[in-house]
Design a protein around this nucleic acid. Structure first.
Lengths: 243, 243
DNA sequence: TAGTGGTCTAGACCACCCT
DNA sequence: GGGTGGTCTAGACCACTAC
């Protein structure tokens, strides 16, 4: 593993340490080398090492103790999803130990619903690109997700696109837009008959409902998302550093 | 507003800028002074200003554009809860625009349930301090929360304590422990008869269920929490910065 | 007391946006 | 071209913990 220029050094250091934790170079519960030692070994400044470690601590992967050292957190190996990491459904499924698959149910242009128009801050009945997908974990339906993008943003001729992309990639590739932040609402909901059928559920146990809007740096809404999680299939376990 | 030594400078700068956004010194959608100007004005280094701004950006309060400037995010004024800010129930209720109140339903020592023992990594039947509370928003029941702490941690003679404290304060005051990180599970659940009664709900609409364990830096479980949110009373709206 | 992480500074160079 | 944020460095001092 070598430090090279183009990618930010702090990110590279972050990746290297993550890797060493994963391959047990740094053992769970044990102390990492000191910041100075790491800086010396990798040939970077201590500030860069500190930035990388701060990120790892925020993700709960390491614990830092002043006057003592930095330790590998032994309790977060099975927990990949951070708070705020609910968007890349495929990664979420993998983090739960399943093999992810995606079914695109519909992909069409249609007028926005009132709710969508409100969240996207657009005039009602503007046309949107609607993408309805089902995410499977080892073949079992786990997430039913609707994503809606103002058609005006779509910059590709015809309607040829890869329906399996996570929303941020989709926006980057086909709309040349970058997500700056998202506003999310979490609710609980009962599945209606059709949803229950799609998710192949017998019981009427409730589902998690996630309502999201994605914005770029100019505060323009880029996309709206409405997702239903079956938490009996997919555990939603998250780590949050305290700070 | 003056910079003084004892509190970390980056925090003070963070507070000052937050204040200026709140009192509309910096207007929504408008550009902040440049990092260098802020550093000069406040008499601190640019690095300190940058650390403060990075935190504000992570909280979604400002948007930073390279080569352009830092802008006040006009869309997050009504959104206080960040991802991971689900713990201070009173603050959450205030952020929703209600007046918070707390009812302590029970406060007792009892043996741990199997689920609690598992999450707290303790032997079954060890005794715990159990705290069952109801949080009200403008008088309406919004959150039903059970918190459980291993009795061995409790360092106060007798059982005199303030039952209205958020969990992190409770642990600090009565157990001399600091929370380093938390592991959370989010689920959806139907209220049973007794819970429906406590929350004064007629409908059988589902609730959000939050299962949490809190750890200190030594990876010891400090507390376990089981909370039910009525999202029809309390909106759970959160911001997540992307970067 | 020695070593660790926590904080802060001053200064450099770069990438990018605006005009 | 001039100003902005993005990155990185070297070095200083402090607070805390383990021994």
């Amino acid at each position: 593993m070598q430090i090279e220029r183009p990618r930010p050094i702090t990110e590279q250091v972050n990746t290297i340490i993550r890797q060493r934790i994963r391959d047990r170079t740094y053992l769970p519960g044990k102390r990492l080398p000191s910041e100075s030692d790491l800086a010396l070994e990798l040939g970077v400044s201590r500030a860069s090492v500190r930035t990388a470690l701060a990120r790892l601590a925020a993700d709960g992967l390491v614990l830092r103790k002043q006057g003592d050292g930095t330790y590998v957190n032994e309790r977060v190996h099975d927990v990949d999803a951070r708070f705020g990491g609910l968007w890349d459904f495929s990664r979420l499924i993998e983090a739960n130990g399943y093999h992810p698959a995606i079914q695109t149910l519909t992909a069409e242009r249609r007028p926005a619903t009132p709710q969508e128009a409100e969240w996207l801050a657009m005039a009602p009945d503007m046309t949107v690109l609607s993408l309805v997908r089902l995410f499977l974990a080892d073949g079992r339906p786990a997430i039913y997700a609707t994503n809606v993008i103002p058609a005006a943003l779509f910059k590709v001729e015809g309607d040829r696109f890869d329906g399996s992309l996570p929303i941020q990639r989709f926006l980057r590739n086909y709309c040349r837009e970058e997500i700056a932040f998202a506003v999310s609402n979490i609710e609980a909901a009962i599945a209606d008959e059709s949803l229950r059928q799609v998710l192949r559920r017998e019981s009427d146990a409730p589902l998690l409902k996630l309502i999201e809007t994605f914005y770029n740096k100019d505060n323009h809404p880029l996309a709206f998302g409405l997702s239903y999680y079956d938490h009996t299939v997919l555990r939603l376990r998250m780590v949050q550093a305290w700070g």
